[in-house]
Computed example of a mutant assay.
Amino acid sequence: MSAELSTATLVGDFVAVNPGTARVLEAHGLDYCCGGQRPLAAAAAESGLDAEAILAELTAVAPATDELDVTKLTNAELCDHLVSTHHEYLWREMPRVTQLANKVARVHGANHPELREVQLTWQALVTDLTEHLMTEEQEEFPAIKQAEADGNSFSREGVEKLMGEHDEAGELLARLRELTGGFEVPADGCGSYRALYAGLEDAERDLHTHIHKENNILFPRLR
């Protein structure tokens, strides 16, 4: 990583430079997607953490040699990457995890009443994401690609709208983590229970990366 990175560097920029640093930030509970536009010092102080110690951990992470450097993609290429990588993942996983959430709530809900809230929160996230993904694929991303091709700027209003939707998704993800105790499966959890929590955690991880690429790489360019 660059020697220029410091506690004044935006949290999202660490992950933009080296995606492997996301694990360090997640371990400390630091938001690098929706909250990625804050300096590390401010984010650490807000959580009562030592920014210099976290910086040392971040700069110690070796970059993966086979990791795609999305910062080098054009806006059009980045839009295509987001759809083929993260949108396709969500279109595939949302129905599967929804079925698991419904099944586990039905079977284990009597002993674990929080599962009903997990089910409802996940469904709210799916509803929001379905509209969000369709809007990006059918309207916003084509407009971004056309603006780049024509040498024009993209609507700042469009950027703010998408970022607001990201904030809402981030709140629902945080609620799911809280309801599940960090996706910790109880002792009486069956295979479907474990599959549900694994699916929720994977979705959280992918969405954090997905939102980071838009909020901290694509959208700042458009602004």
Rank of each mutant, 00 (worst) to 15 (best):
L222Q: 04
H210A: 09
E57I: 08
A43D: 13
L173C: 11
I54Y: 09
Y197D: 03
L68M: 02
L218E: 01
T180M: 05
H210S: 12
A62K: 05
L78T: 00
Y32M: 08
H87N: 10
R175Y: 12
G164D: 14
L222H: 06
V104I: 09
E168F: 07
G191C: 09
E4P: 00
V104K: 01
P186I: 12
A203V: 15
A43Q: 11
L73T: 02
L200G: 03
A22D: 00
G20E: 15
R156W: 02
V15P: 03
T135G: 05
L162N: 04
Q138I: 10
P142K: 08
K72F: 09
A42K: 06
L218Q: 02
M94R: 01
T65P: 11
K213T: 05
H28K: 12
W122M: 02
H212R: 12
V126R: 05
M94C: 01
M1V: 13
S84Q: 13
G158P: 03
V97H: 06
G12I: 08
P63A: 01
A110I: 09
R92N: 15
L10Y: 10
R194Q: 11
H212G: 03
L196T: 07
T9V: 03
A44I: 07
A174R: 12
G181C: 08
H112Y: 15
I144G: 02
P95I: 06
L78N: 02
D188C: 11
T7I: 14
P19L: 03
G181V: 08
A105I: 04
T121P: 06
H28N: 04
E165M: 12
N102S: 06
F14S: 02
L5H: 03
E67L: 11
P63R: 01
L30Q: 03
A45I: 07
L49Q: 15
L179A: 04
E168A: 13
N216T: 12
D202S: 14
T135H: 07
H210M: 08
R221F: 02
G151C: 11
A60P: 14
D50C: 00
G12R: 01
N102W: 05
A64G: 09
A43C: 12
E171G: 14
A42S: 14
S153V: 15
E131F: 07
C34N: 04
D31T: 15
D188A: 08
W122C: 00
Y89N: 05
T71H: 09
A41S: 15
E160P: 02
C79F: 00
L55G: 03
P39Q: 07
A195H: 08
Y197T: 11
V24Q: 03
L82R: 00
V17A: 12
L162K: 03
T71M: 11
H86N: 01
D69A: 03
I54V: 12
A169D: 07
H87V: 08
E184M: 07
L40G: 04
Q37N: 13
I54K: 00
D150I: 14
Y89I: 05
E157L: 12
